[in-house]
């Protein structure tokens, strides 16, 4: 009760002046234990290599909070495009949601197949966001582009365009994050690319541009790299 009271007072006192969303779920994108800045070089001692990220964009869909396996609430907006170029996109607006306890979060990484076959849509799903393939229908669920000296491609660039809405290359991934305790304040969700880059080998795997088995495997690695920041 105390916590709820405190939060709502805070909310009232700053409403109207703040530009950032009052109540939101925050996504933080991490590399080398730091929040990623686009274009910055990160050195890894382990692999004696550096990585810089030029673009990281992905879709989060159907985010829901649960308390002991019962749904507590879901976000009104079904699909969110998270794009590091637009920091406000890292905050999913929850200002209309009641404050409730929860201990589990579920969401999908990517876009479901029904949405993929439903024609042109607007907002986060507008094909002008650069997350739709032109030569073959379908959303790109996750786009990750950057540079690493270990990558043997032209200009050392790697580019993963991960998507696919049809079997056997259905690409969307379910993510479930369990909390160790019940909470009421909204979560910060981290995506830690250290894990990811430790598990793939940029020498062999540096370019994916269409739905494939490999695309599914790489998206699954990314789905596994989400965790709740306590």
């Amino acid at each position: 009760m105390k916590i709820i009271f405190f939060l709502s007072v805070l909310f009232l006192s700053t409403a109207g002046t703040a530009t950032l969303r009052e109540r939101h779920i925050q996504f933080d994108l991490i590399l080398n234990k730091e929040q990623i800045e686009l274009g910055k070089r990160y050195f890894s001692d382990k692999s004696k290599d550096s990585i810089s990220i030029d673009a990281i964009r992905f879709y989060i869909s159907d985010l829901e909070l649960f308390l002991d396996e019962k749904p507590v609430y879901s976000l009104d907006k079904k699909h969110h495009l998270i794009d590091l170029e637009y920091p406000e996109s890292l905050q999913l607006d929850c200002s209309n949601l009641p404050i409730k306890s929860y201990n589990k979060i579920k969401f999908n990484l990517g876009i479901d197949s029904t949405t993929n076959v439903s024609g042109a849509m607007g907002g986060d799903l507008d094909p002008s966001n650069g997350m739709y393939w032109a030569w073959q229908s379908g959303y790109i669920n996750f786009k990750l582009e950057g540079i690493s000296p270990s990558c043997p491609a032209r200009h050392n660039r790697f580019a993963f365009h991960l998507g696919g809405y049809q079997n056997p290359f259905y690409n969307m991934q379910k993510v479930e994050l369990l909390l160790t305790e019940t909470k009421t304040d909204l979560p910060k969700i981290n995506l830690d690319l250290d894990d990811f880059f430790n598990q793939i080998n940029l020498k062999e795997n540096h370019q994916i541009m269409s739905p494939s088995k490999q695309a599914v495997e790489i998206t699954a690695l990314l789905a596994n790299a989400f965790y709740i920041q306590i």
Partner: peptide, 12 residues
């Protein structure tokens, strides 16, 4: 059949 919807055809 690479394009699944008439709306999306123009993109290519």
């Amino acid at each position: 059949g690479a394009v699944n919807h008439l709306d999306m055809q123009a993109l290519a």
